[in-house]
C-alpha cells in the first residue's frame, strides 16, 4: 500500500521536471550497462556451437555467430552417459535436502532465540555471534570432516553449512515481528511451543521462510569449493565442480566417456567450455525472473533489520 502511494507521488514529482539531456544520458547508459550484463552470455551461446573444423579454420575464438553450428558439445554434455546428469542430480539433491535442513535448523533455533523472555538468551546469542567473528579455518575444518567421517560423502555439502548465523538472526527478527498475542492464545489453549512453531509460526512466516530458503538455495546452487576439496569421488561432484573442471581447466576427464570414446575429434575446448556454461546456467536464467523479487524483498528486510 505504502509503496503504491510512494510511486504515485514520485510520478507527480516527475511531471514537475522537464526532460533534459540528463534523462537521455541516463536512459542510454542504463541500456548500455544492461547490455554488458547480457552480451557475455550471448557470446557463450554462440561459441558453444563452434565445431572442430570451424575452430581450425577460423582459429580458436569466441564468436556470436558460428558459421556452421555444431551441436557436438551438447551431445557430449546432454547425451546418454553424460556426467552432467549425475552432477545435476547431486546439485538438486543438495539443494532440496540442504535447504530443507537449513530451514529446519535455522527456523527452530531462530524461533527459540526470538523469545525475549528466554533466560540465557544473551549467552546463546553470543555463542552464535562469535562464530561470525572467528572461525577455525580451512585445515581444522578439513580434518574435522575427516574425523566425523563426512568427507567424501554427500553430507559434507550439507552439514557444515546448516546454519548461516546472519540469516538466522534475520529470521529471528522476522519472528519477533509476530504479535505475541497470537502465540499466547495458543499457549492458553494448551498447545506446546513446538506445535505452535510448526502449526502457527511457520505458516504465518511463510514469506520469510521462502526468502531465507531462497538465500540458502542459491548458496547451495553456486557452491563448488567445499565439494572440490572435500569430495574425491567424481560421482558425488555437483554440477558446479564439473563446470569448474571443464570451464577453467579444460578437463574433460569422465565427462561423458560413452560418447567421447566414440568420436574422432574432441570438440574445441572453447566450445565445450561455452556449452558447459550454457548447460549449467540455463536453469537459473529460466527461473530467475520469477523469483528475483523475493530476493529483493528479503534483501531489503534483512539489511534494514539485520
Amino acid at each position: 500500500m505504502e509503496q503504491k502511494t510512494l510511486i504515485s507521488s514520485r510520478r507527480k514529482k516527475w511531471r514537475v521536471d522537464r526532460i533534459t539531456w540528463f534523462d537521455y544520458f541516463n536512459v542510454i547508459s542504463a541500456a548500455l550497462l544492461s547490455f554488458t550484463f547480457i552480451i557475455p552470455f550471448l557470446i557463450v551461446i554462440g561459441s558453444s556451437l563452434l565445431g572442430y573444423e570451424e575452430s581450425v579454420s577460423r582459429g580458436s575464438i569466441y564468436v556470436l555467430f558460428p558459421q556452421s553450428p555444431d551441436f557436438i558439445c551438447y551431445k557430449i554434455l546432454l547425451g546418454h552417459g553424460s556426467a552432467v546428469y549425475r552432477g545435476y542430480l547431486i546439485t538438486i539433491l543438495r539443494l532440496v535436502i540442504g535447504t530443507t535442513l537449513n530451514l529446519l535448523f535455522t527456523g527452530t533455533m531462530a524461533y527459540g532465540l526470538s523469545k525475549r523472555s528466554l533466560p540465557g538468551k544473551g549467552i546463546l546469542t553470543t555463542i552464535v555471534f562469535f562464530t561470525m567473528l572467528f572461525s577455525g579455518g580451512l585445515i581444522p575444518s578439513f580434518l574435522l570432516y575427516q574425523l566425523l567421517g563426512i568427507s567424501n560423502t554427500f553430507w559434507v555439502m550439507i552439514l557444515p553449512v546448516l546454519i548461516n548465523p546472519w540469516w538466522m538472526f534475520i529470521m529471528r527478527n522476522f519472528f519477533r515481528e509476530i504479535p505475541d498475542s497470537i502465540e499466547e492464545s495458543a499457549l492458553i489453549d494448551g498447545a506446546s511451543p513446538l506445535r505452535i512453531f510448526f502449526s502457527i509460526i511457520v505458516p504465518l512466516s511463510a514469506a520469510s521462510f521462502a526468502t531465507i530458503g531462497m538465500f540458502y538455495a542459491v548458496m547451495h546452487w553456486n557452491s563448488w569449493f567445499d565439494a572440490a576439496i572435500h569430495i574425491t569421488n567424481p560421482k558425488l561432484q555437483p554440477v558446479q565442480v564439473l563446470m569448474r573442471n571443464v570451464v577453467l581447466t579444460a578437463t574433460s576427464t569422465d565427462l561423458n566417456n560413452e560418447i567421447m570414446a566414440g568420436i574422432a575429434k574432441k570438440p574445441p575446448s572453447n566450445a565445450l567450455k561455452s556449452a558447459m556454461i550454457v548447460v549449467s546456467t540455463l536453469p537459473i536464467l529460466v527461473v530467475y525472473p520469477f523469483i528475483q523479487k523475493y530476493f529483493v524483498k528479503g534483501m531489503v528486510v534483512g539489511s534494514i533489520k539485520g
Binding site: 575427516q146 567421517g149 568427507s151 567424501n152 572440490a228 576439496i229 572435500h230 574425491t232 573442471n245 581447466t249 579444460a250 578437463t251 574433460s252 576427464t253
Partner: peptide
Amino acid sequence: PNDGDVAKQRLAALLSGNE
C-alpha cells in the same frame, strides 16, 4: 584430472582421506 593443480589437490585429499 588432467589439470595439474586439480589433480594435485585431489591426490592430496585422497592421501589424507579415510578411503
